[in-house]
Design a protein around this nucleic acid. Structure first.
Lengths: 220, 220
DNA sequence: AGAGCTCCTGAACGAGCGTTTACCGGGGCG
DNA sequence: CGCCCCGGTAAACGCTCGTTCAGGAGCTCT
């Protein structure tokens, strides 16, 4: 190992293959997503991204003000859609807290299996954005967590959930974090060729979540 | 935002504060751990690390062959100890699968709360190492996962666990991954000033794990 | 036809990177 | 004392980074 080759494995075999008639902004977004997911924001260069969609480095700056803005752009769009999906799933689930929890976990896991690349980037690469850009993403994450906390609180209040207590009290925030961690990081290892299909993954995770919070089962 | 300042917030206020009589190799290790955890391997420079222990850049190469080897060194030592801790906890837990699972989760969570910086680095920064270095760490992770899978299989065989099934069959590997994800990522958000102490975190996570796998409770 | 766009190229810029190298002070030992 | 060598310094080296910029191809509109 001599000079500076340290990190940086070859830019995947994906070089020029992106871009199939898409408008260039979309091609750039897609190429950036894939490369950020595969190798990580700091080591992916502007040159890498643009080569992957058959353009040269300078062309990036016709569409984005900086590499930083590109990352912010693709993360926020993904994150906003995730938030929307979660809220919609809960809204459509009716009034039963168990149904709400199941719908939430199902939507969340399905999303993280299907769009695992986007989820991976949105979850792993935030830290590279500067402080003011990172804050609204954290806000969105908190919002999602609070939806979950709300469901748990509702279930506890109506007596259908009995989550584990620590020293006599529930800590719903911590339970929610644990459940979210579990579901989020599916995107780190799930592959479409895996033993379980997306729906099966969702079903499994829903079941584990219901058990974790001690949901009373209607029929069994 | 003009040139190249993109990422890289100031090197924390920790500049020269490391190193209190420690031998320099240990000071370097500690400084590297902290900075890698706070800002990520690729953006922490050799100059940053060495400044943090009051030395100059070149001195690193009296102790490590490269920045890469430094990362490998600190990760493998942490990972090896984690593996040891898990195996020991299980070995000391007796024969009951529930007790083994509880001991495993308790040890794993406690470790990830107490040494959260080290755990964070070991889990997040592997990808920067080159392929042959990364492989034995992945091996160690698989070993830990297999310990957990073994406990689950044992519990299923003896009828004390009834983990969720998907289409009639259990998938113990996926269940194990879910539990591990949950416990591992405590290190991403747990802080010693949090609402729950380490022991309380461990207790909560043990309870959730036992519920997830449907452990039959001895007394309740 | 020609003006005025949109979007691209390719070379350049300055800075920062990991690593190497020439040099040097000081403690242990013959 | 003279020697050596360990572990440090400071200045390079070669390279790559994100970003800028002058120029030009191809299009639409009048």
């Amino acid at each position: 190992m001599t000079k500076r080759k340290t990190v940086r494995p070859p830019p995947a075999a994906s070089t020029v293959i992106e871009r199939e008639g898409r408008p260039p902004v979309e091609a750039i977004r897609a190429a950036a997503f894939r490369q950020f997911a595969e190798r990580g924001y700091p080591v992916v260069t502007v040159r890498d991204i643009m080569k992957a969609c058959g353009l040269t480095q300078g062309a990036l700056y016709n569409h984005f003000r900086s590499k930083d803005e590109l990352l912010h752009d693709i993360i926020t769009s993904t994150q906003a859609e995730l938030e929307r999906i979660c809220q919609q799933a809960v809204a459509e689930a009716g009034d039963d807290p168990s149904a709400k929890l199941a719908a939430f976990v199902r939507a969340y896991v399905m999303r993280h299996c299907r769009l695992r690349v986007e989820a991976l980037v949105a979850n792993r690469e935030i830290s590279w954005l500067d402080a003011n850009r990172v804050s609204d993403i954290r806000r969105s994450r908190r919002a999602i967590r609070d939806v979950l906390v709300g469901i748990l609180a509702e279930g506890v209040a109506s007596g259908v959930f009995s989550p584990p207590k620590v020293e006599g009290r529930e800590d719903l925030k911590t339970v929610a974090m644990a459940l979210l961690d579990q579901c989020t990081h599916v995107s780190m290892w799930y592959g479409p060729g895996g033993r379980l299909a997306e729906e099966q993954m969702a079903t499994l995770y829903v079941e584990m979540a219901l058990r974790s919070v001690g949901a009373k089962r209607p029929t069994n």
